[in-house]
Design a protein around this nucleic acid. Sequence first.
DNA 1: CTCCTTCCCTAACAAGTGTTTGGTAGGTTA
DNA 2: TAACCTACCAAACACTTGTTAGGGAAGGAG
Lengths: 207, 207
Amino acid sequence: MRPAPERRREILDTAAEVFAAQGYDATTVRRIADAAGLLAGSLYYHFDSKESMLDEILRAFLDELWARYDAVLAALLGPRETLEALVTESFREIDRHRAAVAIYQKESGHLREQPRFGYLAGSQRRFEEAWLTTLERGAAAGVFRTDLDVRLTYRFVRDTVWVAASWYRPGGQHSPEEIARQYLSMVLEGVALRDGHRTYERRTKKE
Amino acid sequence: MRPAPERRREILDTAAEVFAAQGYDATTVRRIADAAGLLAGSLYYHFDSKESMLDEILRAFLDELWARYDAVLAALLGPRETLEALVTESFREIDRHRAAVAIYQKESGHLREQPRFGYLAGSQRRFEEAWLTTLERGAAAGVFRTDLDVRLTYRFVRDTVWVAASWYRPGGQHSPEEIARQYLSMVLEGVALRDGHRTYERRTKKE
DNA sequence: CTCCTTCCCTAACAAGTGTTTGGTAGGTTA
DNA sequence: TAACCTACCAAACACTTGTTAGGGAAGGAG
């Protein structure tokens, strides 16, 4: 027998990759099996349904994400530092779970209505609350602007970060931290040039 | 006989709505027919395939979008004014073609590889070029920052605008122009508060 | 009235779907 | 050696999918 206790994880990663590329519904179990190097029926030795694979992928992603987010929130940083930390952690998460994030982005909208995936709605509520309170704290403390609609700002920051999963490829030109830094600079300072504005120093690309 | 020369358009709008909500592959022709008030087979009197419906929806959207974009680009405005006009037109397009935009966002990634939808890749190229040159013009003219990666900035602005289709609902609290104004303010000036920063005046909501 | 066109229905089709069942090669344990 | 377990295959299952063929009701045109 070969080693293969991690064969399950291997298949799951393959499935995530295919789901992210083709969409969940457009992906057949035979396609997954092909990419993983076995036959369709054999998948059911490891998983009890296609839906279970999706469920496991999303749960693993959200669990890890919330572990990081909770650590940031528990540190009780200032609003600006909290925002910076959340954004940075988000990009790191995209770096580690790119496929899962892409799937979440594409499918969570209509999966939320299925009872089995109800936890997606719960997660989104927590998500929204964490960001909104951070933004409101910042507005109250005078570090963020107060002339913007907070919910609009929330969606702006949230989308800005997470859609990066659609184009980000690990091992690319910029590290997750570098991307986070530039994104934060844009979100916080804007892209327009102002007098005396030159706070951001470009880094050389890695390797 | 009832009037109904626009019955075709009616069905197509319904299809777009369902595609946007459930995803193209997850949508069955029976579901579309249900929502449109006829039986599945009857759809084939108006259209010759499910794929044709998708094709027609996306083409109509892109045609209208490019008509507006070309008008903006032909006006030869300054870089900042061009960016503002492009963003505003984009939000107007989301207002008019919300479903089509949402479909485009979700499906264009893997549709692009199909020969029939090759024009999606072409459109994206033109899209990218229009935004990149605007940003580069602005950087050269000293109205945009030069310390940011241009391609990163491009994706930032692009995604920021178009993902709004996932949450925007026409007839909501803010008009497209109002959303465009706040988004532009965030993108250009940033969300951080600075001394003497109070250029943006909040509008009262409509109605 | 009759003919014709428009728009839809009924009923079925073949292909593809997720999933199950029974079997089996080959290593591990006794 | 024999019993056992893991990880897979082969073949089929019931069902759903997009699509087609033939027919028919309703109104306009002659």
